[in-house]
Amino acid sequence: MRTESDLLVLLEELSSIKWYVIGVCEVKKKLSEEQKILNDGHLLYWRGKPQGSKQELGIGFFIHKRLEKNIVEFYSVSEGVASVTMKPNNRYNLKIIQVNAQTCSYNDEEIGRFYEDVHLASERVKTHFTITIGNFNAKIGKNTEETVIGNHGIGTRNERGQMLVDFAEARSLNIMNTFFEKRHRMPNVATLKIRATEFSLNIQNRYSLLDDEDLNNDKINKQFNDIIKEAALKVGGKNDKQSSSKLSI
Rank of each mutant, 00 (worst) to 15 (best):
160 R>M: 06
149 I>Y: 00
160 R>H: 10
163 M>K: 15
198 E>R: 11
173 L>Q: 05
180 F>W: 05
170 A>I: 02
168 A>V: 07
197 T>A: 12
170 A>K: 08
178 T>M: 01
187 P>G: 06
202 N>G: 15
180 F>P: 02
164 L>C: 13
162 Q>D: 09
197 T>Q: 12
189 V>K: 12
149 I>H: 00
190 A>R: 09
179 F>K: 02
202 N>Y: 04
193 K>T: 13
178 T>C: 01
195 R>N: 11
157 R>Q: 15
161 G>I: 04
157 R>H: 13
191 T>N: 08
167 F>N: 05
181 E>M: 03
196 A>C: 07
169 E>D: 05
152 H>Y: 15
190 A>T: 10
202 N>P: 01
172 S>Q: 14
169 E>L: 07
186 M>N: 15
166 D>F: 09
191 T>I: 11
164 L>Q: 12
150 G>I: 02
189 V>Q: 12
185 R>S: 14
194 I>Y: 05
175 I>D: 02
171 R>L: 13
168 A>D: 06
199 F>C: 07
173 L>S: 03
180 F>H: 06
146 E>R: 08
148 V>P: 00
189 V>G: 02
199 F>I: 04
182 K>A: 08
148 V>F: 01
158 N>Y: 06
176 M>V: 04
167 F>L: 06
198 E>H: 09
153 G>D: 01
172 S>A: 15
187 P>N: 08
164 L>P: 13
154 I>A: 03
186 M>Q: 15
161 G>R: 03
147 T>R: 10
185 R>K: 15
168 A>K: 05
185 R>M: 14
151 N>S: 09
172 S>R: 14
200 S>C: 11
176 M>P: 00
146 E>G: 10
194 I>P: 00
160 R>T: 04
188 N>R: 12
181 E>V: 00
204 Q>W: 08
148 V>L: 02
171 R>E: 08
178 T>K: 01
205 N>G: 07
184 H>I: 10
149 I>G: 02
165 V>T: 07
189 V>H: 11
149 I>S: 00
171 R>W: 09
147 T>G: 09
187 P>D: 05
205 N>Y: 07
205 N>L: 08
153 G>S: 05
192 L>I: 13
149 I>N: 01
169 E>R: 06
190 A>D: 12
173 L>D: 04
189 V>N: 10
198 E>Q: 12
163 M>S: 12
179 F>R: 01
196 A>P: 01
192 L>E: 08
184 H>R: 12
174 N>W: 06
158 N>Q: 07
157 R>K: 14
157 R>V: 12
189 V>R: 11
176 M>W: 00
157 R>Y: 12
156 T>C: 10
156 T>K: 15
161 G>Q: 04
190 A>P: 00
171 R>H: 13
154 I>F: 04
189 V>A: 10
194 I>L: 11
186 M>K: 14
187 P>T: 07
198 E>C: 08
183 R>H: 13
190 A>H: 08
146 E>M: 10
191 T>P: 02
147 T>M: 09
198 E>V: 02
163 M>C: 09
183 R>T: 13
167 F>P: 04
151 N>T: 00
185 R>D: 10
